[in-house]
Amino acid sequence: MTTAPEASRTAATSQAIGFLLLDNFTLISLASAIEPLRMANQLAGRELYSWYTISLDGEAVKASDGLCVTPDVGTQTALTLDTVIVCGGVGPQRAVKREHLSWLQAQARLSRRLAAVCTGSWALAKAGLLDGYETSTHWECLAAMQEAFPKVALSTRLFSIDRDRATSSGGTAPMDMMLTLIGRDHGRELAAGISEMFIYDRVRNEQDLQRVPLKHVLGTTQPKLLEIVALMESNLEEPITLDELANYVDVSRRQLERLFQKNLHCSPSRYYLKLRLTRARQLLKQTPMSIIEVASACGFVSTPHFSKCYREYFGIPPRDERLDKSSVEMLPVTLGKEPAALLQSASYEQRPLEPLSAAMGALAQAQGEPTYASVRLKS
Rank of each mutant, 00 (worst) to 15 (best):
K308T: 11
K325T: 14
S64P: 01
Q105I: 02
Q282C: 07
L181P: 00
I54Y: 03
C118V: 10
F300K: 01
D185N: 08
A116M: 07
P370A: 03
T278R: 13
E349I: 07
Q76W: 00
L377I: 12
G183E: 02
T119V: 03
T180F: 01
P239I: 13
H265S: 13
A31W: 06
T334M: 05
M175P: 04
A63H: 00
L245M: 13
D250E: 13
A31I: 14
H138G: 07
P239V: 14
A246V: 09
T3D: 11
Q105N: 06
L190K: 09
L114Y: 11
I85K: 11
M145K: 03
D72Q: 03
I161M: 09
G315L: 12
S307L: 01
A125R: 01
P239Y: 13
Q365E: 11
R38Y: 12
H305E: 13
W122P: 04
R211M: 13
C266N: 08
S121E: 04
R94C: 06
Y271R: 05
S64H: 02
Q286E: 15
W51M: 05
T371Y: 01
P288Q: 07
L209V: 15
V212C: 10
D208T: 11
F25N: 05
T278M: 14
W122H: 12
R281F: 06
D201C: 05
L21A: 12
T10I: 14
G74K: 04
T53M: 04
I228W: 00
K285L: 11
V333M: 11
A362Y: 01
K97N: 05
S290L: 00
M175C: 10
L356H: 03
A341K: 07
D201R: 15
N235P: 04
S121K: 03
T26V: 09
N235V: 05
L214F: 06
A143W: 01
S252N: 08
H265Q: 14
A192F: 10
R163C: 02
W103N: 03
L225I: 08
R46Y: 05
E134S: 11
R98L: 12
S8D: 15
F25C: 07
F159S: 01
S169C: 14
E369T: 07
G88V: 11
D131L: 00
L277D: 00
R112E: 02
W122Q: 04
